[in-house]
Design a protein around this nucleic acid. Structure first.
Length: 102
DNA sequence: CAATTGACAAGGT
DNA sequence: AACCTTGCCAATT
């Protein structure tokens, strides 16, 4: 069967190496979706439990996490990123250092 | 069935 | 530098 958009997105996210991050727009572009950056967020929101998709490596184009600071999801993402060796400063990531460059 | 919303981005004012 | 508008598309209300 043909891969769905969601599958392509998950595939791209899975291809992000450890210690790197990618923006929504970047993922959209690599998945062949063009400017459907919003679709990425929805696709990741659909993720079932038990998946192996490093959704936490997907951030905003400005280097910030897409959740409100203080939210459990925000804290979890930050935790996972730092565990991968990504330095999160004041809820922001230094893209020049950590953004995935294929 | 129409309007709103949302893990966004890019361009313009 | 801050704020507003447009595009994009599916799920929810």
């Amino acid at each position: 069967m043909e891969p769905t958009k969601d599958q392509k997105i998950w595939q791209v996210v899975l291809s992000i190496p450890e210690g790197k991050v990618a923006s929504y727009g970047q993922v959209a572009g690599m998945a062949g979706l063009g400017r459907q950056a919003r679709y990425i967020g929805r696709a990741l929101g659909k993720l079932p439990e038990g998946h192996s998709v490093p959704w936490y490596r997907v951030i905003r184009s400005n280097g910030q996490i897409a959740f409100p600071e203080g939210s459990p999801t925000f804290v979890l993402q930050k935790e996972l990123l730092e565990r991968d060796g990504v330095e999160v400063k004041n809820g922001k990531i230094n893209l020049r250092e950590y953004q995935w460059q294929p």
